Simulated scan of single mutants.
Amino acid sequence: MEFCPTCGNLLQFELPQRESNSRLFCPTCPYVCTLDSKVKIKRKQRLVRKKMEPVFSEEDRKNGPQTDGVTCPHCGHGKATYHQVQIRSADEPMSTFYNCLNEKCGKTWRED
Rank of each mutant, 00 (worst) to 15 (best):
Y98Q: 00
S20I: 04
E103K: 14
T67N: 08
Q86E: 02
F56S: 06
K79T: 10
R23K: 15
P16N: 09
P30N: 13
L101R: 03
G78V: 09
L24G: 11
R88I: 03
T6V: 13
E103V: 09
F56K: 14
I87R: 12
L11S: 05
L101N: 01
E14M: 11
D68E: 12
C75R: 02
T81R: 07
F25L: 09
K107C: 13
E103I: 06
G69K: 10
P73T: 01
G76P: 02
R61A: 07
K50M: 11
D60R: 11
V32M: 07
R110S: 12
K44C: 03
V70W: 05
Y82I: 04
T108D: 04
I41H: 02
S57F: 05
V85Q: 15
N102H: 06
V48Y: 09
R23P: 06
M52S: 14
C4G: 11
G69V: 08
G8D: 07
K38L: 08
K42I: 05
E58C: 07
P16Q: 08
K38S: 12
R88N: 11
K51H: 08
S22F: 01
E19P: 03
R46N: 13
V39R: 05
M94W: 09
V32L: 11
A80N: 05
C33I: 06
R18M: 06
C105R: 00
D60C: 04
P93Y: 01
R43P: 00
P73R: 03
K42Y: 06
K104L: 02
W109A: 01
K51D: 03
K38A: 12
L47K: 10
I87T: 15
K50H: 11
Y31H: 13
P30A: 12
S89E: 06
N102V: 01
T6D: 15
P73I: 01
I87S: 13
I87M: 09
R43E: 09
K62T: 13
H77N: 11
R46K: 13
K62P: 00
L24P: 07
P65W: 00
V39M: 05
D112E: 10
N63S: 07
E58H: 06
Q86S: 05
E92T: 14
V85F: 13
M94V: 10
Q84D: 09
S95A: 14
P30V: 05
N21Q: 15
K38I: 04
S20A: 10
P5I: 00
